[in-house]
Design a protein around this nucleic acid. Sequence first.
DNA 1: CCCTTTTACATGACGTGTCATTCAATTATA
DNA 2: TATAATTGAATGACACGTCATGTAAAAGGG
Lengths: 161, 161
Amino acid sequence: MYYQQEEQFRYHILAMQRAGNRELTVQLKELDLTPSQAEVLTVLNERSMLTLKEIGQHLICETGSPSRLVNTLVKNGLVEGKTDEQDQRARRYRLSNQGKQKCTAVKQIEDRLYKHIQSIYTEEELKILNQLFTKYIEQTDFHSVFRKRSLYEGDPDSGEL
Amino acid sequence: MYYQQEEQFRYHILAMQRAGNRELTVQLKELDLTPSQAEVLTVLNERSMLTLKEIGQHLICETGSPSRLVNTLVKNGLVEGKTDEQDQRARRYRLSNQGKQKCTAVKQIEDRLYKHIQSIYTEEELKILNQLFTKYIEQTDFHSVFRKRSLYEGDPDSGEL
DNA sequence: CCCTTTTACATGACGTGTCATTCAATTATA
DNA sequence: TATAATTGAATGACACGTCATGTAAAAGGG
């Protein structure tokens, strides 16, 4: 068969994403959160007072402007927004106290996921995988997201220009 | 940072899936198909006269019973279904002539994707990636899907038990 | 300063993914 | 053979992810 490895690769990526997302969905259900909502909380926990557009630039789960996603969190009292004083169009968002609490709970659940990953791959294998992934990601819009989120280095502020 | 590689891995998987899906979505738009719809066509092209449940067992894009997905294709004239004679509950689906035509067009688009993947990774790297992915997939429900779809061997019938 | 263009966001639309519920056909069981 | 349990599928519900459109604020050009 032509492209056998390529086809396998393509469906592997899809399956891995689906599997991971389901795992997270189940775990996060006890917090009444979806994986996407949890990612927003994580982003706002790292860098507060972001506009919608900025939040979008830090999300891997979604490209465009995550209006609905963030507004759901506002409605649920986890995030609060204020109109930007310089720009009346923009709103700046931050975690509420309840949101901060949720966020620590989210971290525990993420740790479970990371431990699961650790149980499957050695640190050496993960490095190989991530290195190869980077070759792909570099060619996509996501590259800047990873930099902004500081997901490449252990250093938690190198993405902030 | 704890779990740095694991976190990167997790988001890499998400980003790769999103990037690939967007690429496919754009390409398939000229056929008026979505990636999920294209996967159903591909499955029915490999093995015809499947029930909804069986189609679901061959799909990586979706778990449950893909009623709506398949019915959209029926409505668009790409797939036709007949009630199973042994089991009045079940319907058996196959590609219409129009569906078969679409399917060859889909293959060309998939080939473009595979060539893109080839342009990023060597065959050796793909083998390493797929081998590592398999370690993960083996622990999920998707393992049987890959076997049924014969995505593991070049042999196009080994999954049929 | 007015007018055009751009920008930030909201919203409608559409097709998923996922789960729960419902319904009818089939199988198992008492 | 009645009846109960199971199964295949349809459907409602909900939250996405993506695109297109609309609206108001801001920026830019004359």
